[in-house]
């Protein structure tokens, strides 16, 4: 399959999934008990202006499918609706917070990649004692929820030792980096442990391949063999897991942002749920799902660069 045809097909599939999810997210409103209008306004009730605004925003006077199409049209024009609680455009609310979440997820992804791959490789190559220790730590890391780690990190490093700030996402630049260090760590532990496991298994498998014998018998340097022939060939499972992980980190951020009181998309979502700010809930969930789907699509394309035997689109 040519690159163009592949991209066209892939984009088509992507759009279809997004269309369905957008429909589901839109439909959520109608799963709620009571009329949509009452649900959105909630126990707050509403002034006549609010009722008019909500009716217009959700096109409540139109038949169901017309409403959906109109809502989708607004969405595509970047109009994500209006938050009743914040009295602000949802797109502005999201734009103001997406940076924090992005920084948090990127930092966590970096930690996961570095720690997971090196720990897994070390365990596989050293074996014995190192392997035992790494595997045990990984098993515990995998069993520890991010909020428990977050609470532990705050207790020890922020409250106890005072090395890090307890809450908030800092004022930009280096300050933000310091503020995000503990949250990123909390977010990364379980995934790093999982990646270490996968890396270990993959390196063990690749190290036993015949072509690694060829490289050894040619007298190539051991370090080079590990990098160029073992790790390089282990990349397919590693990238798969890393991609899936990054996609789930976006959801994991919901929890961690709450522990550390960061003003990202996650804390916005939780507050919106508690305050029944439905336009915000819909928008944030849509953003999460789109990010999740996009990351997966990127990973799919990456495969073909990693392993020349995988043809474009042949892998699901």
């Amino acid at each position: 399959m040519s690159l163009g045809a592949y991209l066209a097909r892939r984009t088509g599939g992507l759009l279809l999934v997004l269309l369905v999810t957008s429909f589901l997210v839109f439909g959520l409103l109608y799963l709620a008990p009571g009329s949509p209008l009452a649900f959105i306004l909630g126990p707050r009730g509403g002034t006549p202006e609010q009722i008019a605004a909500v009716t217009a925003q959700y096109h409540l006077n139109d038949p169901f499918f017309v409403r959906y199409v109109a809502w989708l049209g607004d969405l595509l024009r970047g109009d994500l609706g209006y938050s009743i609680v914040y009295r602000q455009d949802v797109s502005d609310l999201i734009a103001g917070r997406v940076g924090t979440t992005l920084a948090l997820v990127s930092m966590a992804a970096l930690i996961i990649a570095v720690v997971g791959i090196s720990a897994g490789t070390l365990a596989a190559l050293r074996g014995g004692w190192t392997d035992q220790l790494t595997s045990s730590i990984a098993a515990i890391g995998l069993s520890t929820p991010s909020f428990v780690i977050g609470v532990a990190l705050i207790s020890v490093f922020a409250v106890g030792l005072g090395w890090f700030p307890t809450f908030g996402s800092g004022s930009g630049g280096l300050d933000t980096l310091v503020h995000l260090a503990l949250p990123a760590l909390a977010l990364s532990v379980a995934s790093a442990a999982y990646l270490a496991r996968i890396t270990r298994a993959s390196v063990l498998e690749e190290r036993g391949r015949e072509h690694v014998q060829t490289a050894t018998v040619r007298g190539l340097a051991p370090g080079y063999i590990v990098r160029h022939h073992v790790l390089r060939n282990s990349l397919v499972p590693i990238v798969t897991v890393l991609g899936l992980t990054i996609a789930t980190l976006i959801a994991g951020a919901v929890v961690v942002e709450n522990v550390f009181a960061l003003d990202g998309l996650g804390s916005l979502l939780v507050r919106a749920i508690l305050q029944r700010d439905f336009a915000v809930v819909q928008a944030v969930i849509l953003v999460l799902v789109v990010a999740f789907v996009l990351v997966n699509a990127v990973v799919d394309v990456l495969y073909t660069f990693i392993d020349p035997r995988i043809a474009l689109g042949s892998r699901k």
Partner: peptide
Amino acid sequence: DVLFAVPGIVFGLIAVAIWGP
């Protein structure tokens, strides 16, 4: 596949958003 496209915990949150905590 579509269900896979939504991270697990998000389903819990969606349910809460609709029917309350």
